[in-house]
Write a protein that binds this DNA or RNA. Structure first.
Lengths: 213, 213
DNA sequence: TTCAGAAATGAACGTCAGTCAACATCGATT
DNA sequence: AATCGATGTTGACTGACGTTCATTTCTGAA
C-alpha cells in the first residue's frame, strides 16, 4: 500500500499517468479541431499522444468521455480569459454580456471551434458546466440590481448556451451578417429579462481586449 | 421513355418506389424513437421496412440523410397540428407562444422524442426549416403590431429553436420543475423583445387543446 | 415474347470503437 | 539486491456498422 501519496504528483507511476492523460487530451483537442469529432479516431488520437491504442481506455471509459473532457478543457481556458478581462467591471449585466459576446467571437473566429459546434449538445453541456457557475453568479447579481428579470438563473443560462451555439453554427455557415452578433447579444439580454433599450445601451459600450490564450 | 408520367404516382415502379421510401421513413422513425439515432442501424431499419439492406441507399445517400428526412417529417406533423390549433388566434404573439409551448410539451411528453433531442443540431435544424416559415411569419406580424422587438426574425427563431431543444433536454433529464416550462416560454418571448410583464400576461391565457396526431 | 432500363437485393468490404492477454515499470518489503 | 504484487501500457484482435456493387428481379413498351 502507499504510505503518503499526497495530492499533486508524487510517484513516477502517477507522473507518467498524468503525463499520458494530458497528452491524450491535447492530442484529442488537436485532432478533433482538425477533422471533427466523428472523423477523429481513437487510434489517431493515441498515436498523436504517442501512446498505445489501448491506453486511452485506461484514462477514459469511452470516446465520448474523452471528447467531453476535451470540451471542458476548451471551455475552461475560455473561462479564465473572460474572468481576467471582466474583473474590473462593476455592472454584472455587462459581465454577462461580455461573456456571451466573447464566447460567440471565439467560437466563430477560431477555426478549431468550428468542428466542435457540430455536436451542439456536447459543447452546450460543457459550456453550462464550466462557464455556468460564473455566468449564473453574474445573472443573479444583475437580477438583484434589477437589471435582469427571471425566476431561475440556471434555466436562463441553460437556454442561453444552446442559443449561443445555435447562433455560432449559423454564423459559421455564413448565414449571418457582421452586425448580427451584436444583435444576438441584445436578444440574449432580452432572454434574461432586460428591456431592449437597456440591452442596446450595454452593447454600445467599449469592450476590453480579451487576453491571449 | 415515359409517355405521360404526370405528377403523383403513375407507374408501378413509381408506386413501389414511393411505398418503399415511406416504409423506410416510418421504420426509421420507429427505430430511432426506440433506441436513438446512434444505436439505430441501417440494417435494422431496412428490415423493419421489409426491404433489402442496400435498398435504403437507393433512396437516401447516407444514414444522416435518412435521419434528416425522418426529423423533418416529425416536425411537419407537429407543424400541422399547431397550425390547426392556432387558426382562430388573433394575436400573432400568442400564436408564437403557443407554438413554442406546444413544441416543448410534445418533445418532453412524447417518449419518442427523447432520443431525437440527443442530436440537437439535427433536430434544431429540422425545426428551423419546417416550423421556421410559420414561426418567422408570426414573429414578423407580432413585430409589426409592436409586440415584439428585434432586427431579424430568422435570427430570433434560429436562437429560439436551439434554446427550446436545450430546455427540452434539461427537462427530459429531470433537472427541471413543472412550472419551468411556462417560465421558459416567458424567457423566449423576452428573447423576441417582449417585456416580461406582457409575456407573463400571454402565458396566463387559456390554451386550446392540441388536435391528436 | 422480347428487351432495356429502373429498382431491389444481400453478400462482401473497410473502418473504427472497444477488449484483452502478455508485458513493462514501479514501490515496498525482506 | 532480490523479490513480489500492483499499476500501467501495449497492439493485435473482435464485433458491429455504414456503405458498395455485381447480380437478380421487376416493369412497361415495342
Amino acid at each position: 500500500m502507499t504510505t503518503g501519496a499526497v495530492a499533486g504528483t508524487k510517484t513516477r507511476h502517477e507522473r507518467r499517468r498524468r503525463k499520458n492523460r494530458e497528452a491524450l487530451i491535447n492530442a484529442g483537442y488537436k485532432i478533433i479541431a482538425e477533422k471533427g469529432i466523428d472523423a477523429a479516431t481513437m487510434a489517431e488520437i493515441a498515436e498523436a499522444a504517442d501512446v498505445g491504442a489501448g491506453t486511452a481506455y485506461n484514462h477514459f471509459a469511452s470516446k465520448d468521455e474523452l471528447v467531453m473532457v476535451v470540451m471542458e478543457q476548451v471551455m475552461h481556458r475560455l473561462a479564465i480569459r473572460i474572468k481576467a478581462a471582466t474583473e474590473s467591471f462593476d455592472d454584472p449585466a455587462q459581465v454577462f454580456a461580455f461573456g456571451v459576446l466573447t464566447t460567440m467571437q471565439t467560437a466563430t473566429t477560431d477555426s478549431r471551434w468550428r468542428w466542435l459546434l457540430r455536436r451542439s449538445e456536447v459543447i452546450a453541456d460543457a459550456m453550462f458546466r464550466v462557464l455556468g457557475p460564473y455566468a449564473i453568479h453574474d445573472l443573479e447579481r444583475a437580477a438583484k440590481a434589477k437589471r435582469f428579470r427571471f425566476r431561475d438563473a440556471a434555466l436562463v443560462y441553460r437556454m442561453a448556451t444552446h442559443a449561443i451555439v445555435g447562433f455560432c453554427l449559423t454564423a459559421c455557415d455564413g448565414e449571418t451578417t457582421p452586425g448580427d452578433m451584436n444583435e444576438a447579444v441584445v436578444l440574449l439580454l432580452g432572454l434574461a429579462g432586460m428591456s431592449r433599450k437597456e440591452a442596446e445601451e450595454i452593447c454600445k459600450r467599449n469592450w476590453p481586449k480579451l487576453p491571449r490564450d
